[in-house]
Amino acid sequence: MFAAESKNCLKMKNLFSVAFLFAIFFSVKSYSQSGDYGVTAGYNNFILSASVDQIPGSGSDGSSGYYVGVYGDFDLGDKFSIQPELQFGQVFNNGETGEMLLLPVMFKYYLVDRFNIQAGPVLDLILGNEEEEINDFGLGFGFGGAFDINEELSLTTRYSVGITNRTPDLTASTVLGGTFDINSRFDFFQVGLSYKF
């Protein structure tokens, strides 16, 4: 009963977080001097990293796939802009398929005319999760860079490091009767192309 209530509270917090980011998105849109819209797609690598408290070392497992999405790019100044995106990702591992929604909000700075570095929060929502111990929703920090091939087409690479523990209630028992917390996070690596309308 308490676990169900805790999970419901977590889902409400997740919805508030998404609503808050959308509020920021619309505020920036109204503040920005100009904006562009486009589509993006590319390679998506999902990385699950896990560690056990009080035991050194950690393990990781990766799954490869693709992502597709839409984005807006809004100027904040001569060299600064903000680029919120909504992506659908799918990965494959040993005959199993995983699906997710990603919401990166990247702050971009142009070092030179055609090359920018970027960083910002990344929200992710795992779709179709049937594991009670794993939280569907997570927060990460993304960073990367992009090169504008021409006025419409850009090449982007990005890495997102998971910040939130996705298994806060998961423990492991020992033969001596002790228990250890199992902590896990989700990371993402992407390489793709963006097309500006």
Rank of each mutant, 00 (worst) to 15 (best):
I126Q: 15
G38D: 07
N129R: 06
E133S: 05
P84G: 04
A19T: 07
G128K: 08
E96M: 04
S194V: 00
L153T: 14
N135I: 01
P168E: 14
E5V: 09
Q90F: 02
T174K: 03
E96K: 00
G42K: 02
T97G: 07
Q118R: 00
F197G: 10
D78C: 05
A19K: 01
M100T: 10
E130I: 00
M100V: 10
S34M: 03
Y110D: 14
V91D: 12
V112M: 06
I163Q: 13
L15F: 15
S6C: 08
E99C: 00
F92T: 15
Y109G: 03
F186M: 08
F80I: 04
S17R: 10
G72A: 06
S194G: 12
G145Q: 08
G72H: 07
A23S: 15
R166S: 05
N116F: 08
G35S: 15
N150G: 05
F143D: 13
E132G: 11
P121V: 01
F147A: 15
V175W: 08
L155F: 07
P104W: 02
V52N: 11
N45Y: 13
R166P: 08
D53M: 01
E131H: 05
T174G: 15
S60Y: 02
S34C: 08
G69K: 01
V39A: 09
A119G: 11
Q90C: 04
L139V: 11
Q190V: 01
V161M: 05
E5S: 14
L123P: 06
I134Y: 15
I24N: 06
D169C: 01
Y159W: 08
Y67D: 12
G69D: 14
E152Y: 09
G38R: 05
G62I: 05
Y66L: 05
T171R: 01
G120N: 02
G59H: 02
D136E: 15
M100G: 09
Q118M: 00
N8C: 01
G59Y: 04
V191D: 11
S154H: 12
V105Q: 11
E85N: 10
P104M: 00
D181Q: 10
M100C: 13
G138L: 07
R166L: 09
D187V: 00
F25H: 07
N150F: 00
N129T: 07
L123M: 12
S17V: 07
G177D: 12
Y110S: 09
S49N: 10
I55T: 10
F26I: 10
A119L: 03
D36H: 11
P56V: 04
Y159E: 09
I134R: 09
